[in-house]
């Protein structure tokens, strides 16, 4: 059993508390805009968790996409809501909702408790053990920049040189995305485009023959402008 450093523990618990705390604010806060900001905080907590787990690429992307872009868009969209501070009214049938929520929570808890999580002792790969127990060897490049050893991009298998340890997961993620899961990647891309177009369609003015109507309206506006020349 390896000893997880106190610092990692502190960071983990801090980030977890942040994530859950902000998530709690999201569901309890009436003000939708505040909820959106709290959601951003929750996303940030998740990003920090990724950092704690040494998945810094995922962590950075989490911040870039979720906090930097999606939260902004959410906050932006919230501004289109009629009455932001009042939030949505309580839904009918709260009991049903509460029951469903409790059931899902129970299911998740059950799974978490019942799963046989692999422990440190189950890991046999010497490199992974080395990484996790911090018993690896650093390789300097001779320059002042010390570089952790990465896998060459050509292979998906992680090759470790000189007994170092892989720290940079970026290359590996990239290789996986465009080699093994390229189809899934592309399909997600397509899905996002479809969602974008769908969103635009939903935002369209639902008037009769909207475009022609809009043009006619514009013409009418122009005429009124011309007629009332002065204020």
């Amino acid at each position: 059993m390896m000893e997880v450093s106190t610092l990692t523990n502190v960071a983990f618990w801090g980030a977890s508390t942040m994530t859950l705390g902000f998530a709690l604010i999201v569901v309890t806060q009436r003000d939708v805009f505040r909820a959106a900001i709290a959601l951003a905080g929750s996303f940030l907590g998740v990003g920090i968790l990724y950092f704690v787990l040494s998945a810094e690429f995922v962590g950075v992307v989490q911040i870039l996409v979720y906090v930097g872009a999606i939260s902004v868009l959410m906050a932006f969209a919230v501004m289109f809501i009629q009455d932001v501070t009042a939030g949505s009214r309580p839904v009918q049938g709260r009991l049903v909702g509460a029951t469903m929520g409790a059931l899902i929570l129970a299911a998740v808890a059950f799974t978490a408790v019942n799963t046989e999580w692999s422990t440190m002792d189950d890991i046999t790969d010497p490199i992974a053990v080395a990484a996790l127990t911090e018993g690896y060897v650093e390789i300097g490049t001779g320059d002042d920049t010390t570089v952790a050893i990465t896998a060459p991009a050509e292979t998906t298998e992680l090759v470790i040189e000189n007994g170092g340890v892989l720290v940079d997961s970026t290359g590996a993620v990239g290789v996986l995305l465009v080699r093994e899961y390229v189809l899934a990647f592309e399909i997600i891309g397509l899905l996002l485009v479809a969602a974008l177009i769908g969103g635009l369609l939903l935002m369209r003015n639902p008037g009769p023959g909207s475009e022609a109507a809009a043009e006619a309206k514009e013409d009418a506006d122009a005429e009124t402008v011309g007629s009332e020349a002065s204020v």
């Binding site: 690429f57 911040i63 870039l64 930097g68 920049t145 940079d168």
Partner: peptide, 21 residues
């Protein structure tokens, strides 16, 4: 010297918009 330093910069600077909003 973060190995995703450039991406980190992009991510962190994008947070300012949330603050402006």
């Amino acid at each position: 010297d973060l190995n995703v330093g450039v991406l980190f910069i992009m991510a962190v600077t994008s947070l300012t918009t949330l603050a402006v909003l």
